[in-house]
Deep mutational scan, measured.
Amino acid sequence: PQEEYKKRAKKALKKGDEDTAREALKRAGLSPDQAEEFIRRFL
């Protein structure tokens, strides 16, 4: 589910792994723009 992928993305970002985070967010159904926004907000 979407929440699970978002959790995964946050874990990846904590490790500084933005590529894995983007992949997880893409799987969560976010557009690339939404994924970038999510990452920017998190960092």
Results as ranks from 00 to 15, higher is better:
E18Q: 12
R27I: 10
A9L: 03
E23K: 09
A28P: 00
A9P: 01
D17Y: 04
D19S: 12
E37H: 06
E3A: 09
I39S: 00
L43C: 10
A12D: 03
R41W: 11
A21D: 00
G16V: 02
T20E: 13
K11M: 09
R8P: 02
F42Y: 12
K14F: 10
E36H: 04
S31D: 10
E23R: 08
A12W: 04
K10I: 15
E36Y: 04
G29M: 03
R40L: 09
G16H: 07
R40M: 09
A35G: 03
Q34T: 04
A24W: 15
K26Q: 11
Y5Q: 11
K14G: 09
L13F: 02
K14E: 15
E36R: 05
K7I: 08
K14N: 09
I39A: 01
Q2N: 12
K15T: 12
R40N: 11
T20K: 09
Q34F: 05
R22A: 03
R27V: 09
R8H: 11
L43Q: 11
E37W: 04
D17Q: 07
S31K: 05
S31G: 06
E4H: 08
A21Q: 00
A28R: 01
L30C: 07
A35W: 04
F38M: 05
A35D: 01
A21P: 00
E37M: 05
A35Q: 10
D17H: 06
P32A: 12
F42L: 07
E3S: 08
L43S: 08
K11V: 14
Y5I: 06
K11F: 05
R41L: 09
A12K: 02
G29E: 03
A24P: 00
D33F: 07
A9Y: 02
L25P: 00
A24S: 08
D17F: 05
K7G: 07
G16Y: 04
R41M: 11
D33I: 09
K11Q: 14
R22S: 03
E3K: 09
F42S: 05
I39L: 05
D17G: 03
R8C: 12
R41K: 13
K7D: 14
Q34V: 06
K26M: 12
D17R: 06
A9T: 01
E4G: 06
F38W: 10
T20L: 09
L30W: 07
E3M: 07
Q2V: 12
D19I: 13
A21M: 02
P32I: 11
A35S: 08
Y5V: 05
E36W: 04
K26L: 13
R8A: 15
P32E: 13
E3R: 09
A9H: 02
G16W: 03
G16A: 04
A21R: 00
Q2P: 09
G16D: 04
E4S: 07
L30E: 01
E23N: 07
R40Q: 12
R41I: 11
I39C: 03
R41D: 14
E18G: 07
L25W: 00
E18M: 15
R40C: 10
T20M: 10
A9M: 02
A12R: 02
G16T: 02
P1F: 14
A24C: 15
E4L: 07
K11G: 07
A35N: 02
F42T: 08
F38G: 00
F38Y: 08
A12V: 03
Y5L: 14
I39R: 01
Y5R: 03
P32L: 10
K14C: 13
R40I: 09
S31E: 06
D19N: 11
R22H: 05
A12L: 08
E36P: 00
P1L: 15
E4C: 10
P32N: 10
K10T: 13
E23Y: 03
R27P: 01
I39K: 01
E18F: 15
R40F: 09
E4K: 08
K6W: 13
K11L: 09
F42N: 06
E4T: 05
E3P: 07
Y5T: 04
S31N: 09
A9K: 01
D33A: 13
F42Q: 06
K7M: 08
Q2F: 11
Q2H: 11
R27M: 15
S31C: 10
R27E: 13
A9F: 02
A28T: 04
E23L: 06
F38K: 00
R41P: 01
F38N: 00
R27Y: 09
K7R: 12
E4Y: 11
L30H: 03
A9Q: 01
L43G: 08
G29T: 01
A24Q: 14
K7C: 12
K10E: 15
G29A: 03
D19W: 10
E3L: 07
L13W: 02
K7H: 08
G16N: 06
R8E: 15
L25D: 00
F42C: 11
Q2M: 12
A28L: 05
A24D: 11
K15G: 11
E37F: 04
L13R: 01
S31H: 06
E23G: 05
K7N: 13
A28H: 02
G29I: 00
A9D: 01
L43R: 11
A21K: 00
F38A: 03
K15M: 14
G16K: 05
R27G: 09
K15V: 13
Q2K: 11
G29L: 04
G29V: 00
R40D: 10
E36Q: 06
K6V: 15
R40V: 08
E23V: 07
S31T: 14
E36K: 05
A35T: 12
L13A: 03
K6F: 15
K14M: 15
F38E: 03
R27T: 09
T20A: 13
R41A: 12
T20D: 07
G16S: 04
K7Q: 13
F42I: 09
R22G: 02
R41S: 13
K11I: 15
K26F: 10
L43K: 12
I39F: 03
A12C: 04
K15D: 15
K10P: 00
L30F: 12
Q34D: 11
E23F: 02
D33P: 07
A35P: 00
F42W: 10
K15N: 14
D33L: 10
E18Y: 15
K11D: 15
